[in-house]
């Protein structure tokens, strides 16, 4: 085979190769129907959020009417002195909630999130709430602390916050229960 023929065949190969690479890499523009589906999915997401909201409110109205509703939230302020492990909640002597924290949940709390630990119903009158907090405290020591609060439940929704704070005076965590107005 002559040199020119060789070049021609090699050229053909290159052309084939270039053609193939080009065609495989070629990306079709997002078709109109794809765009329509994307917009439809976004619209559906909006509707699902709305439905979730309505069901959330309906559930509370049904199960926890405002006059008897009682909720307990948990927050961690900074969390430098405590690696939160578990929390147990007692209302009038009965354990009503307990939670073991994953790393992600603990981080979410440290970043300012508040967990709704418990929601239930309480009659009007005086009640006692106790929270038991467990975790790893300063110097990698097991840490356990409880906080109690006696409070008066009126005819409105009652909300309490179990607050875990860093106490800089003795570098220890501090647990308290605060009533929200």
């Amino acid at each position: 085979m002559t040199d020119s023929l060789k070049t021609l065949v090699a050229g053909l190969l290159v052309a084939l190769m270039l053609f193939m690479s080009g065609s495989l890499l070629a990306e079709t523009d997002p078709a109109e129907d794809s765009k329509a589906v994307a917009e439809r999915v976004q619209d559906l997401k909006k509707k699902v959020i709305r439905l979730n909201r309505d069901l959330f409110i309906l559930e509370e109205d049904l199960l926890f009417p405002a006059s008897t509703q009682f909720a307990v939230f948990l927050s961690v302020d900074a969390g430098k002195f405590l690696q939160l492990d578990a929390v147990k909640l007692k209302v009038n002597g009965d354990i009503v909630a307990s939670h073991l924290y994953t790393e992600r949940q603990a981080t979410a709390l440290e970043r300012g999130g508040m967990q709704r630990l418990y929601i239930g119903n309480l009659k009007t009158g005086t009640h006692e709430v106790t929270a038991f907090v467990e975790g790893i405290g300063p110097n990698n020591r097991a840490y356990k602390q409880a906080a109690t609060l006696a409070f008066e439940k009126g005819t409105d929704t009652a909300a309490l916050e179990i607050r875990i704070e860093d106490r800089s005076s003795d570098y220890q965590p501090m647990v308290s229960i605060v009533e929200w107005e």
Partner: peptide
């Protein structure tokens, strides 16, 4: 610190990447 319990709760879900739950709570 959250000054509103609803916001604090939404943030709790938000920081965990649970967008749907957090969006629902903000809507509520």
């Amino acid at each position: 610190r959250a000054r509103d319990l609803a916001y604090g709760w939404a943030l709790y879900n938000y920081h965990q990447g649970e967008a749907l739950e957090a969006l629902t709570l903000l809507n509520v």
